[in-house]
Amino acid sequence: MGSSNGLHARPADLITREARRWESRIEFIGESRRVDGKSILDVLTLAAEQGTRLVIEATGPDADKALEAIGRLFDCNFNELGEDNLNPIG
């Protein structure tokens, strides 16, 4: 988890929205729990802070593409650059 604000509401919205585009079952595995990657309430329960390690698991016909798409969101830190000037935490 690279973003300094951690996995707060907006990135959780972005990644669950992306996850729902795919047929595969997508799960996020945090330090103490495994949750449904298509549910924002589930993903928020991970409370993943910066530096936390998350494993993303996809199972299904489009698993590879789904992982690639979700991985891209993490790679660009959910496009949060400069957003702190605007305000938010999440």
Partner: peptide, 21 residues
């Protein structure tokens, strides 16, 4: 929340979302 405490915000969200499931 105070600007320098993103962790507290995350833990509050965690609690709210866990209960609301």
């Amino acid at each position: 929340s105070p600007p320098d405490r993103p962790g507290d915000h995350l833990r509050a969200l965690e609690n709210i979302s866990r209960q609301l499931r």
